[in-house]
Amino acid sequence: MAAATHEPEHHTSTGLNHRKLLMWTFLGSECLFFGSLIATHMINRNKAELLHGLSPACVLDIPITSASTFVLLMSSVAMVLAVAASERSDLKQLRIWLFSTAFLGTIFLGFQVYEFSAFVNEGLTIGTNLFGSTFFTLTGFHGVHVTVGVIWILSMLATSFFRKDLVTGDPLNIDITGLYWHFVDIVWIVIFTVVYLVGVFGLNCVEAA
């Protein structure tokens, strides 16, 4: 059935779908985007105490972030189950897992909002010092990606009600959404290790004058 309705798209030299190839190239490009942001953070990570104290060790909360990391990993599991459901054209399962993914993604964003406001209360804003600048920019851009992902997934969920054919007839629509979502997850895996665990380990909170 899919072959019949999507005949023009199937005629490619490699036999691969245009949009899926586009998404993977886009993710390759995104690697350099986040790579540059992480490099900025790494270069400047020890320069927080130069101005207004509040270095990573003073504010980063490992237990809370471990919890939010757990939530994001779970959302990835939910997403892959949604992709599998769409492969089977199982509309009911698809809706359940899409909703779960978006729900868990929203909880992750909730954690991030909580974390950001806690930092601001402690006196660390994007303009306080270099750590504040790199931290809020890096995790903020990740948060924007998560937000876009949640909106995308909710849009697919809505589509599954009024244009069933788009999500069951062509599993690629969910597949590509999934690729984006998992990418956001692996970026967080790197950020959690590099910024949080390695970034704080062995450092004591020393507030400069």
């Binding site: 490699t14 036999g15 691969l16 790579g35 540059s36």
Partner: peptide, 23 residues
């Protein structure tokens, strides 16, 4: 398909190279 891996790994390797190079 390996083309998908290739385009992604190309970006990943360059990102890693630039990040490590700068550090």
């Amino acid at each position: 398909h390996k083309i998908f891996s290739s385009v992604f790994i190309l970006g990943l390797v360059l990102a890693l190279g630039i990040t490590l190079g700068l550090i």
